[in-house]
Nucleic acid binder design. Structure first.
Lengths: 332, 332
DNA sequence: CAAATTTTTGCAACCGGTTGCAATTTGATT
DNA sequence: AATCAAATTGCAACCGGTTGCAAAAATTTG
């Protein structure tokens, strides 16, 4: 069923090397030879075995795409962008789902067994140590949506989560709220921690404003809704900074269901600017995270690192901006 | 950096075959030998190269996971289920994004270059010919969410879309609507066609009920919303069967924005029962598609086909059921 | 037209494993 | 202790390609 180089060589009446060369660009082959070989290959329906060749070239063009965010709709867009971007450059994503898996060791071993050329860790919740495990194993790695650090050990592409927290805080202050709260995702997630600390540090400048915090169990609609329903039982804050849009939308539904209005009674500002945030029945004021840029920059960085494995690690941080829609009251 | 079998053999002072055998289960190795080899392997940090071994065994454990549905949130769940299910069986998903790609030839070539053991086509819109191209290339293939056929050429796992259309029609009839409409996804999608024809065939039994049809440009919120806004300009129907939940939610938002109420003024029934359909501010009456079962059955079928490549093609069709929530008026 | 140079081609070894076969070792049996 | 069967081990060829090197062919130069 499967045609090998040897059969093509026999049919074309040439050596195996000749066939190999016509399918390797940059190799020295005469036009006549190339035509002969291509004809034979055509007739036999030959296409070279990428894995066999990887054995000698040391390159598979496989890229591990590792994530644990399979419940946040924004990651569908992330996967779409990654897969297309990688495909366009002739790279093949080997998808690894890390859900309920915290130890990098297994993933590292598996991806090395498949000789991936590099690994993209696409996660806003995994700690830097996770991606570092790949680097320590000698695999080029880019951590997308990861924690930015002043001295990164691996390439990181993402946003400044602490700055986003401050940005949200400034926005709430500017609107004149006097009692605000942070409603984050899981406390173990680095993005939650950074958004939280940024938010708190900015609010610390305004001691007259009351600040509270709580954390949902996951970055999900249900978790946000559940947490908000709980908060509504006692006296809720005037405005919430939610650690993620999908949380915001859960929070929004909880508030509306309890008969209160947004932004009249309670304000919400989210983070991500997911597609749904634009929906007219949601119309969420949120902080835009430039995921297209993050993904395409991650891919560029990966490709650069493949060509230059010892490249000095860098952090690429993209600015975010507040998208004003309808869930915060106007400034007084 | 990378440790090979040869080095382990040298360190353990044994033959290469011995090392190979300790890492192949079912091979004949004495306990003493195994201990020696494992010790050396441990010390060197060896793990076998899966691709090199695939060369002789003919198995890579790679499975092509091919889809063109990267904009429907339900597919994030589908990818989650597929990746986890495959991983649990030691299979590795090679993700292929087919967005704006209609010709199977490229994907077939690429996946054969990587010697995938099998291909899962996860798409509700691709025609049967697409998955057949893989079979013709000698690759085991399962088409999940594909068009069911009485004489399938490849394995198909999914639902009976025409029956879903009839089911929706019966539901609308039972509620006493006298003017209904189908609002489908792209007309080229097989799932749209089948849902449409099922819906029409059932409605044909009730000539006194007025029926209209239209099609959104994509299975997306925006497309549904846009189409509904257009329909609202003239006289809309009393109830809509939307070809997918994301369409339904777009339609819902268009209706609410125009000042009408659901289900008082206009009824909606969707299809899929995506997570969001349960959200209290949406509360969509819809037809449940059992995606967990579809995915796990697809994986089972894939595994079975790997062990028995000439397995006779079969269609596994799972029943759907109406989930009553709040977007259809009660039966009179 | 011969010599010098450049390009093209094939040989053979190699990439990191697996496996049939024969040789060797082990263990059971008498 | 000798005999025989069963289990274990190593040899060597192979999987489907690539590549350094030298021989052969084509091209340029004098």
């Amino acid at each position: 069923m499967v045609v090998t180089l040897k059969e093509v060589a026999e049919r074309a009446g040439v050596s195996r090397s000749a066939v190999s060369r016509t399918f390797t660009d940059g190799a020295s082959v005469s036009d006549k030879m190339r035509r002969k070989v291509e004809k034979a290959a055509q007739e036999l329906g030959y296409s070279p075995n990428a894995l066999a060749s990887s054995l000698t070239t040391g390159r598979t063009k496989l890229i591990g795409l590792v994530s644990n965010n399979f419940h946040n709709p924004i990651f569908l867009e992330v996967f779409d962008l990654f897969t297309r971007g990688l495909q366009d450059r002739g790279l093949r994503p080997l998808l690894v789902n890390l859900t309920d898996e915290v130890d990098p060791a297994n993933s590292v071993r598996m991806l090395r067994q498949y000789s991936v050329d590099g690994v993209v860790v696409a996660s806003s919740t995994l700690p830097p140590g996770f991606s570092k495990a790949f680097r320590d194993a000698g695999v080029p790695v880019v951590h997308s949506f990861g924690r930015s650090s002043s001295s990164p050990q691996v390439h990181v592409v993402g946003i400044d989560n602490a700055e986003c927290g401050r940005m949200a805080a400034r926005e709430l202050v500017a609107r004149g709220y006097s009692n605000v709260a942070f409603l984050g995702g899981p406390e173990a997630a680095t993005s939650t921690q950074d958004r939280h600390s940024g938010f708190m540090s900015e609010m610390a400048k305004h001691p007259q404003i009351e600040v509270n915090c709580s954390f949902a169990e996951a970055y999900s609609f249900d978790a946000g809704r559940r947490e908000m329903l709980r908060l509504l039982k006692s006296k809720p804050a005037e405005a919430y900074f939610c650690g993620d849009d999908v949380l915001s939308i859960g929070v929004l539904s909880a508030i509306l269901d309890s008969g209160l209005k947004v932004p009249e009674n309670i304000g919400i500002i989210g983070l991500n600017d997911m597609e749904m945030a634009r929906w007219e029945n949601i119309d969420l004021t949120t902080i835009h995270q430039p995921i297209r840029q993050i993904v395409s920059s991650s891919i560029e960085l990966m490709v650069a690192t493949l060509n230059e494995p010892d490249r000095y690690p860098e952090a690429r941080i993209f600015p975010c901006s507040v998208i004003e829609r309808g869930t915060l009251r106007p400034a007084p």
